[in-house]
Amino acid sequence: MDEPISPGDRPAMGRSPGISEPAPPAAPSAPVRAPSLRRWLASPLALAPLILLGLVVAVLAIASEGQYFGLSFWGPVWEFIPTDPAGSTYGIALFALGTAITAGIALILASGLSLAIAIALTTYLPPRTGRILTTLTDLLAGIPSVVYGIWGFVVLAPYFASTVEPNLRNALGWLPGFGGPESAIGGGTGLLLGIFILTLMVIPLTTAVMRESLRSVPRDVVEAGLALGATPWEVVRRVRLRVARRGLWGAVFLGFGRAIGESVALAMVLGNTIQYPPSIYGGSYTIASFIFTQLDSAFFYPELLRALVEFALVILLITIAFNLLGQRAVSGVRTRTVPGAGGRA
């Protein structure tokens, strides 16, 4: 069962598909020789993914018309309804800040938790227990974003406002970003809730990649460590993590690609406020959640639409960059429980 991990891997619930189980991808057997005409016709089909990818980039690049790239694009102000279309500036800065805060912190939390889970699954838990727990954590990946969103907005937000945030403010108020006046805490939606939800959404991917990276460490290397009188933890820290380092970083890159692209759930729980967030309790927007919520109002303002398309292009390019990095890093790692991850990069 050997599938390299790739950015879009969505662990489905379960120890899954054994799409993988079958033998290591058969030793590259000589491709079937097709008649040359058919071969020639075939290459567009083989390249369908590449063509689709190029099409998406091209359409967005054309739609943006490139005219807003430049200083004003990075200006700090977003004019909601441009009063002077020709001279309006559409700044990405505040949204980029929102993306950086939510994706950055969520990724740090998710990486830590995923690493702990991956170590527990590969070193400490008995295989059967591990399989059941893996099925359950992979379940998180199958849950639609909007469902995370409505749960966050309706169930968690009031709880965050009444309990989590006041307590956090009392306990960590001295930390910059965690204090502020009592009025800093609003209805519960905001950065804190957004980070929490995003963390949960990123975890299945980072866990799957980290788990398989650790699992791909050859057994005899691990045993060599044990045979030298190292405790299981010492083997993890000094051998396993070191050997699997590339794959673990790959998980972080792929996780970042996933985190910055999330739009729907964050649009529901982030408080949708264009502002420099005064604290972790304040509302914000990410680039993705902003373009998700604004497209309908842009219908009447072509300039606005172009700016939004450029935002889309920005996150697309960043995502591609991080996924390429991640793919490179995990190219040696093979995952078994991540279905759909067929390609051998």
């Binding site: 790739s6 950015p7 879009g8 891997d9 390249l47 993914p49 590449l50 689709l52 990818l53 998406v56 967005l60 739609a63 974003s145 792929l254 690609g257 996933r258 910055i260 692209g261 999330e262 739009s263 729907v264 993705a288 373009i291 998700f292 497209l295 939004l308 398309v309 889309a312 996150i315 697309l316 995502t319 591609i320 996924n323 390429l324 793919q327 759909g340 991850a341 067929g342 390609g343 051998r344 990069a345």
Partner: peptide, 17 residues
């Protein structure tokens, strides 16, 4: 294959656009 993996990583909202 690389393109396939990248395509899977495109944010949904970008595809929406």
């Amino acid at each position: 294959r690389v393109a396939g993996n990248l395509l899977a990583g495109i944010p949904a909202i970008v595809l929406g656009y």
